[in-house]
Amino acid sequence: MDAEAQDRFREFVENRSSALLRTAVLLSGGDRHAAEDLLQTALVKAADRWHRIDEPEAYVRQILYRQQISRWRLKWRRRELTVAEPPETGASPDAAPDAELRLLMRGALARLTARQRMVLVLRYFEDLPEADVARVLGCSVGTVRSTTHRSLARLRALAPELAALGPAEVESQPPSRDFSPVEVRP
């Protein structure tokens, strides 16, 4: 990378790293340290191919997604997750105010598999259409749809306080065939 390319790279990182970090934090289930590692690794890869990248942000995001569901991160980069409040059970859903529900939701999101969490981030944070999510993940639209449903169902299972929330269609899904365990953190 020559000096001019390095300057362009620095400018890109300065302008876009905060937005990219936000996505990385969400993909990492709220683990800021893991997110910073994830972003740095993605930026290193982008720097390697800097001279050939037309849309750096799209490229880095793609790496973030791919990297997050790769084995490396799951096996080695897993670390203790600090959740503001663990999901609790038994409370009346009616009694939970929105702020509390959001905290419960955060805890539940952090306990999804990386892939389940990524589908939700792409659908509900990045607001990508299902077809675009499918393209990002390299799977069919049907898989995106079923993973989304299963992920939402898993959230409800993890935090029963969320069970009273709509819509009904999630409830009508057949039992999950995704037998993957919730990520267990050491």
């Binding site: 969400l26 929105d98 529900l101 959001r102 939701m105 955060r106 999101l109 939700l120 981030v121 509900y124 944070f125 939402l152 959230l155 409800r156 969320l162 929330l165 709509g166 819509p167 999630v170």
Partner: peptide, 11 residues
């Protein structure tokens, strides 16, 4: 609020 909206807000 439905579960998708809560996911969106929480994220």
């Amino acid at each position: 609020m439905n579960v998708e909206e809560l996911v969106r807000d929480s994220l």
